Simulated assay, not measured.
Amino acid sequence: MKLLDIYFSLKSDIDAVERRLLDEVHTSQRPLKKASAHLLKAGGKRIRPVFVLLAGKFGTYDLERLSRVAASLELIHMASLVHDDVIDDASVRRGTPTVKAEWGNRMAMYTGDFIFARALRLLSDIPNLEVHQLLSKSIVSMCEGEIEQIRDFYNVDQNLRTYLRRIKRKTALLLSISCELGALVAECPRPVVRALERYGYYAGMAFQIIDDILDLTSTAAKLGKPVGSDLRQGNLTLPVLYALRHSPDRQRLRTLIHPEITDSEAIEAIEIVNRSGGLEYAAALADRYMEKCLAVLDKLPKIEARRQLEGIAHFINERDH
């Protein structure tokens, strides 16, 4: 099943989520409205809203409630991207200038805070205490993960466990909570809620590892940002960590990774990583997460939504951008 077919089957409901997103970034403050709209128009895969909607198919499907959850989680994701771009000093995302690049750090931070607040307000009408408790816990964990990432910038001595905890909090957690909250709002049976939560977690871990591989192997045109952006910004991903331990040139690589890294040093570092076996190691780990992701689907009822979730998992594993 192709990803476009899945999105097309959900088009009217995704459109409802998009309308909510547009409504939520509206404000009488023109600079804030322009910055928020700029971020929204930059687009994205909208995979979190799709996970919410598909999870809802396993229970009582109420688009009014599910679209609130879907839009809220996408807004939280958007807010985190704005803050990330300030922290990473990023000028381009998805091929377009970042809010930080267009309006500066201060406006970017206010925009992120505004979007985040809108997300919480939008979800406040959901009368389910467990939804709010789970989301609050997840947001705390995400923030802790961001602090850990900043702490470990350019740290060549960090280990695999640190990396896995970081990507869980950075990516997998929000995908996992998208599936879980969609299922809870749809009043799915507990075993179904748990299986969907696990699906989102495993898919999220694979998604981020593949992202980290593509950051080193894809093109700037496909990525919408410079190749090796993570390495240049000091965010050391799995292929780099592998190379730092197993490459014959690991000592040279250690000297290349520093806060003032130049373009030529970044290119040399990427070359060392790419021939170290780190890409293959990372791909094998992503495959293991994807196997777990697909296996947990066997615990779900055999409905069309399950087939669509399987299709998304295959897309995640095979994508090139």
Rank of each mutant, 00 (worst) to 15 (best):
Y199R: 04
A220Q: 12
Y199P: 03
I270S: 00
E146P: 05
D15P: 05
R232P: 04
G112D: 05
E291G: 10
L81V: 13
P301C: 10
M290N: 11
D85N: 02
A186T: 10
M109K: 15
Y202M: 05
L10S: 09
L122T: 00
P191T: 03
L175D: 14
T60K: 13
F116T: 07
R20Y: 09
R46N: 11
G228W: 03
M205A: 07
I270P: 00
K299L: 13
I257C: 00
V156H: 00
L184S: 06
R106H: 10
F207P: 07
C143G: 15
A186R: 06
L244T: 07
G59A: 13
S72G: 09
S178R: 02
V296C: 02
D212A: 01
K137G: 10
A37N: 07
L75G: 07
L123I: 09
Y242S: 00
Q29R: 13
L236I: 12
N274V: 04
A203W: 08
H26Y: 14
E291D: 12
V50Y: 03
L123F: 03
L214R: 02
D263L: 15
D287A: 02
L256C: 05
K302W: 01
L120N: 13
G311N: 04
P189A: 01
L63G: 09
N317I: 11
A186Q: 11
L244Q: 06
R106C: 06
D62F: 14
S247W: 01
S141V: 11
Q208R: 08
E304P: 06
S136V: 15
C188E: 02
L294V: 01
L241W: 09
A117V: 05
I147S: 08
I312L: 09
S218M: 04
L4M: 11
P49V: 11
N155S: 03
Y61V: 11
E74R: 00
L129V: 08
Y154A: 05
V192C: 08
D125R: 06
G56E: 12
L4K: 14
F114G: 02
L135K: 10
M109C: 14
L216Q: 05
L300C: 11
K299W: 07
G59Y: 14
T237H: 03
T219I: 10
A243E: 03
G145V: 15
L134W: 13
Y201A: 05
L181W: 01
F58G: 00
I150P: 10
L129H: 06
D152Y: 10
G277K: 07
V227G: 07
Y242C: 00
P127L: 03
M1V: 08
R169T: 10
V131C: 03
S229W: 06
S28L: 11
D230I: 15
Y201S: 06
E291A: 08
N235L: 10
A220E: 13
S9I: 13
D211M: 01
K45Y: 04
K34C: 01
R306I: 00
E265K: 06
S264P: 07
A37K: 02
K11C: 07
D263F: 12
E187H: 15
V273I: 08
P226R: 02
L54H: 05
V240P: 00
R118C: 05
H246Q: 04
E271N: 09
L32M: 03
H246P: 01
I312S: 01
A90C: 14
Y199K: 04
G104V: 11
A295Y: 05
R106Q: 08
K41T: 09
D5Q: 12
V86P: 12
L123K: 03
G43E: 10
S229T: 15
L175N: 06
E310I: 01
